[in-house]
């Protein structure tokens, strides 16, 4: 786990975003244990307070849950997981839209190009998602 932090977004927001990406892409599975705040801080090289804050946000958003004294885990709530995935896709599409829109390409052409790129790239990478 390694994040290249940008300097203008709150670090805790970037950590939460990172977790969402890993949840959406399946690197983190529903019910999987996540590191303690201390481990996370050391791993990401961030302030333990920031790790704490990120976990608090995720807990409040229902992304993770904690039972008693056990380590926190990724939620198994399908609705939440679906929403995370959807939000991530939407965000990517939005980014795409803002760059493609000024070029004024017809929709069909864009869709064809996307299809073509998407399949070759996926095959090229061997379909791997990990790391």
């Amino acid at each position: 786990m390694k994040i290249n932090f940008n300097k203008r977004d709150p670090v805790y927001v970037q950590v939460v975003r990172h977790f969402k990406e890993e949840i959406a892409t399946g690197i983190l599975e529903p019910g999987q244990e996540i590191p303690s705040r201390r481990e996370l801080a050391a791993k990401l090289k961030i302030n333990p307070n920031t790790a704490q804050r990120a976990y608090k946000e995720m807990e409040e958003a229902g992304l993770i849950y904690t039972e008693g004294n056990l380590p926190s885990k990724i939620t198994k709530d399908e609705a939440v997981l679906g929403a995370v995935r959807e939000a991530l896709i939407l965000q990517a599409v939005d980014t795409f839209m803002t760059t493609i829109r000024p070029i004024n390409v017809p929709l069909d052409e864009v869709v064809d190009l996307i299809k073509e790129k998407y399949t070759t790239e996926t095959n090229g990478e061997g379909g791997g998602m990990g790391d």
């Binding site: 932090f5 670090v11 050391a42 090289k45 302030n47």
Partner: peptide, 25 residues
């Protein structure tokens, strides 16, 4: 970012913060 300073108060002086910008409160 380690447990070595965890829960302690730290005051640090520096003239350039590149090394620790995302670490400080």
């Amino acid at each position: 970012s380690s447990h070595l300073v965890e829960d302690r108060g730290v005051i640090i002086t520096t003239h350039e913060i590149n090394d620790i910008e995302h670490l400080i409160d």
